[in-house]
Amino acid sequence: MKTTLGKSTALLTEVWLPIVALAAWWILSNKSTSLYFPPLSRIFSKVGEVVTTRFASDILPSLQNLGAGLCISVIIGVACGLLLGLVPPLYSAFQPLLEFMRAIPGVALLPIALFLFGIGSDMKVAIIVFGAFWPVLMNTIDGIRGIDVLIKDVSRSYSIKPWDHLTRIVLPAASPQIIAGIRISVSLGVILIVASEYIASTEGIGYIQLLSARQYQMDVMWAALLLLGVLGYLSNVLFRVVEHRLLRWHRGLRGTDLGGQK
């Protein structure tokens, strides 16, 4: 009885502000005639309209390009990170070049990507890969370089086979950092898909948003913005679920470590 009460209070604390904010927006904008801030009710109905009528033509391509770009980033990033992390001389040789390349904001490459790939999915995927690849790469390298020497001693003294060493020791040991890198990549990927849909595109949620802004259809623009927010939020939540499952051991380990020290 008491715990359910405690739980519902906790839930209430979490949700009251978002509800109040939403309600305030709804009420304040209800009779709005402002061009820029249409009533929330109209925005919501536009969200429904966009989702139902333009799912296949715009939402799906956005998701596909994002998914493809992120998958390629993760695969290349982890593979290159393994190589550079396991071969220190290679890393010290490439480090300055990599630091420079990753300092280029992905959006700054849009003009070049236009030269190279023209307009289309290839360009968008390429931009995502270039922007989202770095956090995975750098975190994989850091993760591998940070593996405890004792773990390496264990692996050597028990003559663990190279493949087992890689898949059962190196990758899991580096996984907390690799996953932290992927997480940054996911949010960068969402930014870059939107950016690439702004600059030269005929489809995508970003394209809908920019087009409607140009045509002063503010309700559609807000609807698209809300959809992008939901997309960003959902990708984050989805990622947290995956992380939660994969890194169960890591939380457990840290939990006991803390308990032991304090």
Binding site: V154, Y158, I160, D164, G252, D257
Partner: peptide, 26 residues
């Protein structure tokens, strides 16, 4: 070899059983 620092010499991502089996793989 049995190392001093047990908390670092066992793989935290594996079960006890998998830790013991690891050197026998292959």
């Amino acid at each position: 070899v049995v190392f001093q620092d047990y908390s670092r010499s066992l793989m935290p991502w594996m079960t006890v059983e998998a830790n013991v089996e690891l050197p026998l793989r292959g």
